[in-house]
Design a protein around this nucleic acid. Structure first.
Lengths: 222, 222
DNA sequence: GACGGATACCCACACTTGCGGGTATGGACG
DNA sequence: CGTCCATACCCGCAAGTGTGGGTATCCGTC
């Protein structure tokens, strides 16, 4: 029915990338996909924040290392202005350390620049489908994050059910009095339980207990 | 060179699943893949813990809902005994809430039971490649987790560099005195900074600040 | 040059917390 | 039947913490 060369129902994808050749390369690649077209390429985060909101593309390809504002910060601001905008981080292999900040900023996927055109297309389609495409290396880092949390919670398995309730309340910032009210117990009882909890968790303060319970991050004095 | 029907270099995959038909279905499916074969199927976590360590398969397909011990607990124990064992959670669609506990237990992937044979095979190959295969719905939940953390850290952007150092130290469980020593400042100075930090973060105690900073979980009194 | 913000320090007071001791009951396991 | 553990409570003391006041310098902006 519709002419293929007009791409009538294709999805708008914007690009934010400072290097001219790379930017043009991606734009050509996107236009070569039937499902997508690229009406907007930006050379900086600042340019992106000016032009992209008005255009309201479905997806933005975002580089992380940009001259002024970083791609992470740009991602956070675009998401704040228009949360429906899906942002696919597409960056060099070295900066896998930026994965967590990128996800925290609201990124919807994280690919490496040297991905194949087919992988890029698959990732874009995955995003349209509500997925969060990641390379296997990125996914492994994400999984590692949870394993770390799991390990730090091993000691918690040794806590009694009541003690678990206590540490759970602690980690929501409640004071002893608030915990006592919540569980309908005496403050003295909470203090008594806390002594056991601290001993079993090998900590000396509630802040340390919370840190360990919620825990990533290397380690307190201990 | 080698005969195809012997599958000489195929990878060992064990199965833990209580329902007989499902278990047999997976076993047949696995054996139909050239790269994999299934010499061990277990009907319970307890059976798995007895038989799987001796066999040392490369991958274990694990159901979550098992009669006695859960698949999560079984995953944690298998991983503890032999961390090299890769465990792919393969379970029903309803229990997506188990994603985080599963990842914390050390799961290497999370698929839904109704995945296609091709998707299962792709996931197994991804695991051998070091990846952590997830369905798009699972990946979305994982991404949501980080976004939540990001949002809770927005208030932190308003902290001055020194104040960020303080909250960073707080979240490692340090006391005011320890922070003062670390930063070579007076304890009074730390207390002074903490007042500002608490105000900017809208909290009233260090435990609450740590909880918010490390933050998932709904919310304290506030 | 005034103003705000960041940095750095000090004091006093009330309250909370950590830590040392207790007591008591009930259920589980051998 | 005794021992262990979880549950639940109490007291006191020292130390740490939260709060409300201060003071001072420096630095950038308007």
């Amino acid at each position: 029915m519709s002419a293929r060369q007009q791409k009538p129902a294709s999805h708008l994808v914007a690009i934010v990338e400072d290097r001219d050749e790379v930017r043009e390369h991606w734009a050509r690649l996107l236009d070569s996909f039937d499902e997508f077209n690229c009406p907007c390429t930006c050379a900086s985060a600042e340019e992106a924040l000016e032009r992209i909101p008005a255009l309201a593309p479905e997806i933005v390809l975002m580089d992380i290392f940009l001259p002024g504002m970083s791609g992470i910060e740009c991602t956070a601001r675009l998401k704040q202005m228009r949360p429906a905008t899906r942002i696919l981080i597409l960056t060099a292999s070295d900066d896998e350390e930026m994965v967590f900040p990128a996800l925290e900023a609201g990124a919807d996927g994280y690919l490496l620049k040297h991905s194949t055109p087919a992988a890029l297309r698959a990732a874009l389609l995955d995003i349209l489908d509500g997925g969060v495409p990641m390379t296997s290396g990125i996914a492994r880092r994400v999984a590692e994050h949870f394993r770390k949390r799991g390990r730090s919670r091993e000691e918690i398995h040794r806590l009694s059910p009541r003690e678990k309730e206590i540490i759970e309340a602690l980690s929501m910032g409640y004071s002893n009095k608030e915990i006592a009210d919540k569980l309908s117990l005496s403050v003295e009882t909470i203090r008594s339980y806390l002594k056991n909890v601290y001993e079993k968790m090998h900590v000396r303060s509630r802040a340390e207990a919370v840190a360990k319970y919620m825990g990533d991050r290397s380690g307190p004095p201990d």
